[in-house]
Simulated scan of single mutants.
Amino acid sequence: MIKRPFFHALLRDQTGATLTEFAIIAPVLMILVMGVFDAGHTQYSNALLNGVMQKAGRDLTLQTAFQNEAAIDAAVRNQIGNVLPGDATVQLNKLSHFEFEDIGEEEEYDDINADGLCNNGEPFVDYNNNGQWDANRGFDGIGGARDAVLFTAIVRYDRLFPVANLIGLSDQVEIRASTVLRNQPFDEQAVLEAPEGNCV
């Protein structure tokens, strides 16, 4: 039969309490630390990408941009690649527009059936002259003299810390940065020819 003093001694015994408390707190602490590092890395990468894009945007406005476009793209990829994992992908998109106010605008169309869609053969103005209606009327590439260019970088990479599934985030991070520029007036701007087409 176990004597009563044994239970009193057991209730007062605090041996191993620190280890037990640490075992309870450690997982939460590790998730918190990894989350802070993950968020910090993402913010730093985003700030770096914005800075690189501003520099690239200034370089693309120069008259030498057509000859140096590949080198400018490579510089963006190299600089952002210095802080990202090796499997990171960098997608660079350039859309040129006749005027700044054209950026982000869809091609105009006559919504005959009032359904809010360009369809059923409705006529539209083919600003980028590619034979189809587009939600963005820009031309692919950096365009020509005096054109307004929207230059966007989209970067995707796997998270550096295994914290995503623990707190309900995606395993992959996507950051993006854009800059808008106008090509230097080294020549007369081309006349905008926008034929009409029909929506499919």
Rank of each mutant, 00 (worst) to 15 (best):
Q184Y: 10
K3H: 08
Q79Y: 06
Y157M: 06
N46T: 10
R182H: 04
D59W: 05
N46I: 03
G143N: 08
V155N: 04
A9E: 00
I142E: 03
K3N: 07
N82W: 09
P185M: 07
G138S: 05
P185Q: 11
P162L: 13
F7T: 09
A26F: 15
T61K: 03
F22V: 14
N128H: 04
Q79L: 08
E174L: 12
A88S: 15
N165I: 11
W133A: 07
A194K: 03
E99R: 07
V125Y: 10
G40F: 02
F161Q: 09
I142C: 00
V76S: 07
L150K: 10
L10I: 03
D140F: 04
K55S: 12
N136E: 14
L117R: 10
A88T: 04
V28Y: 08
N113W: 06
A88K: 11
I167Q: 12
M1W: 15
R4Y: 00
T18S: 15
V52C: 04
E196C: 00
P185N: 04
I142Q: 10
L169N: 09
R176I: 02
D158R: 10
V180E: 14
G86I: 13
N165L: 11
G40H: 01
N119Q: 13
V149E: 09
S45K: 03
V52L: 06
D59F: 04
N183M: 05
E193K: 01
W133T: 10
N120D: 15
S45P: 01
R77I: 13
G35N: 07
N113V: 04
V173N: 02
V155P: 02
F22Y: 10
K94Q: 08
Q132W: 11
V76C: 11
L29I: 15
I31Q: 08
Y157F: 14
Q67G: 08
Y109V: 00
N68Y: 02
D38E: 15
A39W: 05
D158W: 01
F100G: 01
A153R: 05
R4C: 01
R156F: 03
C118H: 09
Y127S: 10
H41D: 02
A190Y: 01
V83P: 06
V173I: 13
N198W: 08
F161C: 05
Y44H: 08
L192K: 04
E107V: 00
N50F: 05
L10T: 05
A148Y: 03
